[in-house]
Every structure is written in structure tokens, then in C-alpha cells.
Design a protein around this nucleic acid. Structure first.
Lengths: 339, 339
DNA sequence: CGATGGCGTGCATAGGTATGCAAACACCCG
DNA sequence: CGGGTGTTTGCATACCTATGCACGCCATCG
């Protein structure tokens, strides 16, 4: 294993000073074309590349963004992460990734480790942050953007879809379809996404003089959602439509209804999901769902993060991106319905 | 934004030298209990944590592992990444993640950037590495482990399932089921996983006096696999069984057969997948498939990586982990078949 | 032709930590 | 009481790069 090649080595070979080498690799620095050329040649023959650590130590910018995510079994997240990573790479930034597991017990420890690496910013997905952590990040001047979760009163920027509107659209579509007993399977009780989707759903039902027929806790988990579905259908007055807080659970619910309880979807029960993950479009499910516009959400997240990097005093923003109802065949289509 | 807190600040407050502070946070260093206590207190009141960058600059160890992955739409990878991340975090390592996109054109650039960050090691998933890059990593003394792909002759360690054996098992199971025209939809032509699965399949067929009835290129891509399936069934002599190179494509093929061509699976055609992703177990598909034991593969990958870190001169290993055939209902079950 | 300004370059230092070395100290045994 | 052994501690330096400062050079302008 050869010794590491440093800017000193390049400088010696090119017959210039170390600063010169540094300047050639720092865009915006003043260098004569002549010297730039010589340094480039020397660097190439030695295979030199600037040490990002040393650079980060001095500039205070690592070009690393910390990403904290609880779990990846909901395909919405891998999709978002891939887009996020691509968008950041395009700007010369990279993702240091941390998983907390479903329980998210040690989120604080995880973020501490993230801070150790002097990340320039943090993106969290499906994660609740403690107030203490929030303060630590603020004290360190590190911007935080919450992806697909808001924490009211935290003073943190958050990017979500318009969950309230989504919940409303769900209710309106199901009501228009003539359903009478509209149930809901929620996500995490303490997740803003889940709360807002339910709240919008409830509000629209209330305006039409309805109540939410029944609510079960699905915890954004497949197995839990399956049980929730069974409990709902076990009732003396089972629902004729279920709005499920995300697609990942909705697909599970469809499986239970069809294969376990031998029910017809949407003949016996209509199912509505949330996210529009790729699988929702697969013909085996053909799930009617509310689209979360991943691309635009990712773009907004990145933009917000960079905006905060440039202007640390910038006020936190709550960005809600509206997504359409994607009508497929898992929920009864109202007569005369037009997109 | 408060100035960063350094070991100097802690030293001053505790009335000791900076080296003392460093030693308290470096395990294995000799410190008196008395001093350790005073430093700890001072550090806590100031909220000090060692700067991982500076530490990495000096020790030459960043505790960062670079992960390069092409795409995340195949759910096998998110699953593996989550396990990988958890396993590494347990050892105090973290993942810097890079995506190359399906075309993987600029893999070289991506790995260069990875090296800039002085990562301690690199894991690649579903990626082919150029020989030039391999040499660069070797020269920098950075161990590389290929996950779910081997590159013969590259001198790199690789962890895969036993793809040859898997291919054989697929053939044997389908032959035992009485199938006569056994087709294959492959992954990437230049991916060892795809080649080996086909090779094992072909070999077992040959031993039974059969040929592979037809081969189509699926490129590990859903849309491409759908077209491949249609082409296969368009033939004058369509296959009565298809071994698909991974589950992600196999599910697509099942969708095409059932919903597009109105065929029965396995009544008209048997389908066999590879991976055993979570969705393969969902009742809507209930896919018979060859399991890749993710947990053990991840464990082996991490162990191999650490082994190389400790002993840089260690020879590269090719680790193949055998996985069982998981029999479900997408392929005809041979009479009298017992697990 | 002298003054002014802008550009290109090197020197020296900073950024935060780990560690070899030597000094200080304690302790034990003969 | 002296020498040897072992443990703590501080000093100084190294890791690698970016950048403020000063200097020299050339061009430009009045």
C-alpha cells in the first residue's frame, strides 16, 4: 500500500508551491492557465485527488448530508432515497445514511453520531426528533429538513404532501361512490402524516354529515395492518370502504380481504391507499390511491436544505405539495366520475 | 451559531492538557480515573464531542464505509441495505451511499468521489467495477467487497448466494413437475449472478437431456421483463415453465401472464423466481422462488470487510451462500414432492 | 515616465485531534 | 535507600488542505 499522495507531492513534481496546487483544485481561485496546466498534469500522473476530510476540516463544509430513516420496507422510501441521492450528487453532496429501526428508540444517539461527522445538513424521513436534538442541531448551525413528516412547534422545516387535502379527497371520492360505513386504518398515532390524513378524512366526512365509522391502528406496518383489517371486518357492522394511511398497508389489507376473507374488492369493500408506490399500479392490485409526488417532494427538500445552508437565519418552512387522486380499480368509481 | 467546541475548550475548563482530553475519548489510552472523571464532566457541561473529521485525518480511519448501488427499485436491495447499515452501526461504522443509476455509466467517477472521503472500505451492490478502479482501490489499500455480484479475475472478494446451485434447483424442480419447454428470462448479460443462474439451469437441464427452450433478456428491469414474457408467449411453441432471474422480474411476468394474456399460473405456465423478496410471500403472487439468505449474506459481507481491514494482505474470497427453494404456488408442485 | 491597480504566486498559519517522547511520579523489592 | 518497573501527564508535532497577507510583476492611464 503506497503512501497517500498529497498536494505536497504534486507541488514538488510540478515545481510550484502547495498553495498553488490547492488553488488549482479550488474553483474560484486565481490561477494562471499555465500553472493550472502544469499542476493538472502532475496531479494526473501521480493520481492525486484532494482529501475531502482535510478540506472539510478547514472550510467547515463537508458536503455530506446526513439522512436518518427508520426503515426501508415501505417502498416509498427507497424510491425517495434514490431520487434524493441523485439530486444531491448532482450538486456534489453525498448521503451519510443512518437507520434507526422501527422503534426509533435511539434516534438521539444516531443524530449525535451524525453531528460528529460535521455533516452540513440533516434530512430525516419518517422520524420524530426530540426537542433536545433539535436544539443541538440549531446550536451547531446545522439545518434540518423533515421529509414526509412534520413536527408542529419544532421550528424545523418540513416537506410533506398535502395530507389534509389528501384525506379530504379520499372521503369525497368514497362518499361519491355511495359508501356508508367508511373506516380508516391509521399509521403511527404520533406521526403528523397519519394524523393529518385522518383529520382531513374526518373533516370531509363531517361536512357531509358522516362520522368515521371505525378507526384501527396500523402503525405503518404490514402485519399490524393485516390484523387491523381483520378486526374491522369482524365487527357486527363491517365497513364498506377503508381508507388506509399508506399503500404499503393498503396492499396488505387487500390481501387479507381477498385471500383470507374471500371478499371482493371493490365489490364488497372499497380500498383507498396513500403514496402511489410503484406496486400500486401493478395489475394484481391496481390500487386507487393518493399520489405523493416524490420527485417534487425531493426537489423541494433539497432546495429548502440548500436555502438554509446559504442563509442560516432563514425561517423554517412547512412545504405541502398537493398530489392527485389516482383512480384505479380498488375502490368503486362514482357514476359519471370524470378525472 | 456558537463557535465549535474543541478539545482545547474542554481542556481549559478541566484544567488539563488537550492531550488528556483526547486520551479520555480514545479507548485504550492510559488515563487516571480521577482525570477521566474531570474531563467527562467538563465535556458534558460544554456538550463536547470529538470531531470525526479531524480524528480521521490523523488516524487514517474514518469509520465510513462507502456503498455503491445502482438502483433501489428491486426490493431485495433496500432490505439488504437496512441490514447492512444496522450491522455496521453496531460496530461504529457508517454508510456513505452512492447511486449510479441503471446505466452505471459513471461508476468510475462515483468511486473516485468515494475515495476522496477516505472511506475505510467499499461495498458494491449490483455493480461492475472497471479494472482501473480496482487497481486504484488496491493502491489506496481500501478493501472492496462485492455484494450479490462476482467479478471473476478481479481479485476482489465477493459475496453471493450459490447461483449455480440455485439454477440447478430451479431446473430440477421444474423437470420433476413434468415441464417440457423450460424458458429463461435473464438479468444483465454481463452480471455474474445472471450468468451463473442460467449456467446452473442449463447444466441441470443438459444432464436430463434437455435444452433451454428459449432465453430472453430481462435486464433486471420490470418493463423489459414484461416484454420478454410477451415475446416468449408469442412464439409458436410457448414455454410451459419460465425460470426468471429474479423475483422483481418474476412478479412482472406473472402480471403479464395473468392479466394481459389471461393465462393461469401455474396451470398454463409455471413461474420460478430468485431472491425471495418479501412480496414473493404475499398471497397475490405466492411465488415459488430461490431464497437469497440476506441476513447471512450481509453478515458474511461485513465479516469479510473487517477481516480485510485487519489484514490488508488477505487473499480475496469468493463466498457463496446456499439458499433453499421456497415452494409456494406459482409453479406446479411435483407429485409426491416433500420439502 | 511615474503612479495606480489588478493579477498570480509563495509563505505561513489554522483547523481539531492523536500520539511518540520525555519527564514526573509512585511503588516495589532487595 | 537506590534502582528498576510501571503508570500518568504534558509538550510538541503531524495529518492535509485552504486562505489571508505580502510581494512582485505587468499593464494601463494620465
Amino acid at each position: 500500500m503506497a503512501r497517500k499522495i498529497t498536494s505536497q507531492d504534486v507541488a514538488k513534481l510540478a515545481g510550484v508551491s502547495q498553495s498553488a496546487v490547492s488553488r488549482v483544485f479550488t474553483k474560484g481561485a486565481s490561477v494562471s492557465p499555465d500553472m493550472a496546466e502544469r499542476v493538472r498534469v502532475a496531479a494526473d500522473t501521480l493520481g492525486y485527488r484532494p482529501n475531502a476530510l482535510a478540506r472539510g476540516l478547514i472550510t467547515g463544509r463537508t458536503r455530506i448530508i446526513g439522512l436518518v430513516v427508520a426503515y426501508l420496507d415501505n417502498p416509498f422510501y427507497p424510491d425517495a432515497i434514490e431520487k434524493l441521492s441523485t439530486a444531491l450528487q448532482k450538486q456534489g453532496y453525498h448521503l451519510l445514511i443512518f437507520t434507526t429501526g422501527r422503534h426509533g428508540i435511539d434516534t438521539d444517539r444516531v443524530i449525535s453520531e451524525l453531528l460528529d461527522y460535521q455533516v452540513d445538513g440533516i434530512i430525516t424521513a419518517s422520524i420524530n426528533l426530540s426537542g433536545k436534538l433539535t436544539k443541538r442541531c440549531a446550536a451547531a448551525g446545522i439545518p434540518v429538513v423533515l421529509f414526509n413528516r412534520g413536527i408542529p412547534g419544532s421550528g424545523l422545516s418540513a416537506v410533506t404532501s398535502d395530507n389534509l387535502a389528501g384525506g379530504r379527497k379520499a372521503a369525497e371520492f368514497l362518499l361519491a361512490g355511495g359508501h356508508k360505513r367508511l373506516a380508516h386504518i391509521s399509521g403511527f398515532r404520533d406521526a403528523s402524516t397519519s394524523q393529518d390524513r385522518l383529520e382531513g378524512f374526518r373533516a370531509a366526512l363531517a361536512e357531509a354529515g358522516h362520522d368515521v365509522h371505525a378507526i384501527e391502528d396500523g402503525k405503518y406496518d404490514r402485519a399490524t395492518a393485516c390484523e387491523a383489517a381483520r378486526r374491522l371486518m369482524d365487527r357486527p357492522d363491517p365497513p364498506d370502504a377503508i381508507f388506509v394511511a399508506n399503500d404499503h398497508m393498503a396492499l396488505a389489507v387487500m390481501d387479507v380481504l381477498r385471500f383470507d376473507l374471500k371478499l371482493d374488492v371493490p365489490g364488497d369493500v372499497s380500498i383507498l391507499g396513500y403514496d402511489d408506490v410503484p406496486m400500486a399500479a401493478w395489475p394484481a392490485y391496481d390500487l386507487t390511491t393518493l399520489r405523493q409526488p416524490t420527485r417534487r417532494m425531493v426537489q423541494a427538500t433539497v432546495e429548502e436544505l440548500f436555502a438554509q445552508l446559504e442563509n442560516p437565519t432563514r425561517a423554517a418552512r412547512r412545504i405541502e405539495i398537493d398530489g392527485p387522486l389516482v383512480v384505479r380499480s380498488s375502490a368503486r368509481i362514482p357514476q359519471g366520475y370524470v378525472t
